[in-house]
């Protein structure tokens, strides 16, 4: 069983929801990313979504765009991100790590070389934002051959027929984009999310996570009532941005937010 499947089974047995924080690798610097990853686990993360910085993050809002720009100042590339995962794995063999990013850095490395290096480094899943299943056969084959999960997005605009197609090639979990918009957008309609999740669950037995637009304990708790996992990105990145020059304060702030959300998730599912 993959690390992701194992983690979701554990959570299901305990009737808990997964908390999945997102950070951009290299923001504000590569060393801080490693410290942040451990701090996230210590403060309640079940899975870490590690962003691979890209110069043109089309699906992201201004907060994650700025995080990419801060990371790219250090010249961090996909191989460096895999190096961070490898170092994380030296002391954490249990927490699944999902890479989230755009296709071009993988294209340059080559699907096979990337999948091989990612598996070696201890990556568990790969979410490539701008790679729909229709275009993804080469990468999908390469990931599957190494036991890595390909994670895909489902959006409010995804039709029932497409949900089935996407679910059929997905592994690990499905990531439902809770609104039409970019990451870090303002509002989220929990009723609409619940309705769509019911539709998704008709097509798959995979766990379903919800992201985009979850910013605090309250919105996280609301989503936890209907989803298996809650992804929180821009809210974490904002704290990293605010405390970019003071790592101790950054780690404390991130732990604080994570603690609140963890508590809210756990009380929502009691």
């Amino acid at each position: 069983m993959s690390r992701l499947a194992h983690r979701f089974t554990e959570l299901k047995n305990a009737n808990r929801r997964a908390l999945i924080p997102y950070i951009t690798a290299g923001d504000p610097n590569p060393e801080a990313t490693l410290h942040l990853m451990h701090a996230l686990v210590e403060s309640g993360a079940d899975v870490i979504e590690l962003g691979v910085p890209f110069s043109d993050p089309m699906a992201d809002g201004p907060v994650i765009q700025a995080a990419c720009e801060r990371a790219l100042v250090h010249g961090i590339g996909l191989r460096d991100v895999l190096g961070l995962v490898r170092r994380f794995r030296e002391t954490d063999g249990r927490t699944p790590v999902v890479l989230m990013g755009y296709l071009n850095p993988i294209e340059v490395m080559g699907a096979d070389a990337f999948a091989e290096a990612a598996a070696q480094a201890g990556v568990d899943g790969v979410l490539t934002v701008d790679l729909p299943p229709e275009e993804g056969s080469a990468l999908l084959t390469a990931l599957r051959a190494r036991g890595l999960d390909a994670i895909f997005l489902i959006a409010p605009t995804t039709t029932a027929a497409r949900i089935a197609r996407v679910a059929a090639v997905s592994g690990g979990f499905l990531y439902y984009v809770s609104l039409k918009g970019v990451t870090g957008s303002a509002s989220l309609d929990v009723d609409a999310v619940a309705e769509k999740l019911a539709l998704i669950r008709q097509q798959t037995t995979l766990p379903v996570g919800v992201g985009f637009g979850i910013r605090d304990a309250r919105s996280a708790a609301a989503v936890a009532r209907v989803a298996d996992a809650v992804v929180i990105g821009s809210a974490v990145i904002r704290l990293i941005e605010t405390h970019a020059s003071d790592e101790a304060a950054m780690l404390a702030a991130v732990r604080g937010l994570m603690g609140e959300i963890r508590a809210a998730l756990d009380s929502a599912t009691v």
Partner: peptide
């Protein structure tokens, strides 16, 4: 029919745009 010119072209966008 899927918008490919040899190996080029195609449709590489986030899921929200696939339906539209």
């Amino acid at each position: 029919p899927q918008g490919h010119y040899g190996v080029y072209g195609g449709c590489f966008v986030a899921e929200t745009l696939m339906g539209p």
